[in-house]
Computed example of a mutant assay.
Amino acid sequence: MSAPRDPFFPANQSIRQSTEPLDVRMLGEVDYLHAWELQAELAVQRAADEIPDTILVLEHPSIYTAGKRTQPDDRPTNGLPVIDVDRGGRITWHGPGQLVIYPIIKLADPIDVVDYVRRVEEALIQVVRQCGIPGAGRVDGRSGVWIPGSDHHHRKVAALGIRITKGVTMHGLALNCNNTLEFYDYIVPCGIDDASVTTLSAELGRDISVASMVEPTLAALDDAFAGRLIVADHSFDSAPDPTKGLPRPAR
């Protein structure tokens, strides 16, 4: 099947400027602000070609992060701190049991942000399907990986938040493995109030650890970036974009 829209260059071509192997850093549990500062430092170094393309693999302690389009009503009601960040999107939660991956990659010219996002999604869709959820796919108008639900009430199992500066990617993806869902009850996750959030463990009825998902997710991302895993049309529904037309609230 074809990609949702034609990319700027062939789908079987690498989206990375470099042909060198990815430098994967396994960081364990890292405070969100520390990880954000590290990303910024690495992005500057990558833009200057001082380091190779780098992927950070980690988990965060429990925290809310609010993207540029977060609205006042999205914010938590339970008193947990919120960090306002420079990625797109609205509010989400990070915490133990959630696999977080931040690619710091210099993209090839011409830079195609949509293609980059679609490739990350494609990698995650394949990983989730290989776990035993064959219906996982996209909801047009909304980023991330979704599992079909009845009456269009779908469940989000992986979220994306991206920033690209000087051709280098920052932020990335969060795959819900065996994390609690409690903290989503106190926000409007990603600004979406007509759907829910789930985990691989909840969907499969068995424990799916973060550690077990690291290798397949990294392999799928590498394949997607290189063009070995071709973006296909896995959309099973469409829904309003929760960020479209929204102002950036004053902070």
Results as ranks from 00 to 15, higher is better:
Pro189Arg: 11
Leu181Gln: 11
Ser196Pro: 08
Pro216Lys: 01
Ala211Cys: 06
Asp194His: 15
Asn178His: 12
Gly161Trp: 00
Ile164Cys: 04
Leu181Phe: 11
Val188Lys: 14
Lys156Asn: 09
Glu182Val: 12
Tyr184Arg: 06
Asn179His: 10
Arg163Pro: 01
Leu200Arg: 03
Leu204Thr: 03
Ser196Lys: 12
Gly161Ile: 02
Ile164Phe: 04
Gly161His: 02
Thr198Trp: 05
Met213Thr: 00
Glu182Ser: 12
Lys156Gln: 10
Tyr184Pro: 03
Ala211Thr: 11
Ile162Tyr: 00
Ser209Ile: 06
Ala159Pro: 04
Asp207Val: 14
Ala195Phe: 06
Phe183Pro: 11
Ala159Arg: 05
Ala159Glu: 14
Asp185Thr: 15
Thr165Ala: 14
Ala211Met: 04
Asp194Met: 07
Leu181Ala: 08
Ser201Thr: 11
Ser196Gly: 15
Ile208Ser: 02
Gly205Thr: 07
Gly191Phe: 07
Cys177Ile: 02
Thr165Glu: 13
Tyr184Asn: 09
Asn179Met: 15
Met213Gln: 13
Leu204Met: 09
Asn179Leu: 10
Cys177Ala: 12
Asp193Pro: 04
Cys177Gly: 03
Gly167Asp: 09
Asp207Asn: 12
Gly167Tyr: 07
Tyr184His: 13
Asp207His: 06
Asn178Thr: 03
Asp193Tyr: 10
Ala159His: 09
Gly172His: 00
Val168Gln: 06
Asp193Ile: 09
Arg163Cys: 01
His171Arg: 04
His171Glu: 02
Gly167Lys: 07
Ser201Leu: 04
Ala211Tyr: 00
Leu204Trp: 09
Asn176Thr: 07
Ser209Phe: 00
Ile192Lys: 08
Arg163Glu: 02
Leu200Pro: 03
Asp185Leu: 13
Leu175Gly: 07
Tyr186Ser: 15
Ile162Glu: 00
Ser212Ala: 15
Gly205Ile: 07
Leu200His: 03
Met213Arg: 02
Ile187Lys: 09
Asp194Val: 13
Asp185Asn: 15
Met170Glu: 14
Met213Ile: 01
Asn178Cys: 14
Ser212Ile: 06
Arg206Pro: 05
Ser209Thr: 15
Cys177Glu: 01
Lys156Met: 08
Met170Lys: 11
Ser201Arg: 03
Asn179Ile: 09
Ala195Pro: 05
Met170Thr: 13
Ala202Met: 10
Glu203Gln: 13
Leu204Glu: 06
Thr199Gln: 05
Ser201His: 02
Met213Glu: 03
Thr180Arg: 13
Ile208Leu: 10
Ile162Cys: 00
Leu204Cys: 04
Leu160His: 03
Val188Tyr: 10
Leu204Asn: 05
Val157Pro: 04
Ala158Asp: 08
Leu204Pro: 02
Gly172Ile: 00
Ala211Glu: 10
Asn176Leu: 06
Val168Cys: 10
Thr169Tyr: 02
Ser209Tyr: 00
Asn178Pro: 01
Gly191Ile: 07
Leu175Pro: 08
Ala174Val: 03
Gly205His: 07
Phe183Ile: 11
Thr180Ile: 09
Ser212Asn: 04
Val197Ala: 10
Ser201Ala: 11
Ala202Asn: 13
Phe183Gly: 06
Glu203Cys: 10
Asn179Val: 07
Asn178Gly: 05
Ser212Tyr: 01
Glu203Ala: 13
Arg206Trp: 11
Leu160Glu: 01
Ile192Gly: 06
Gly161Lys: 01
Leu173Thr: 05
Gly172Met: 00
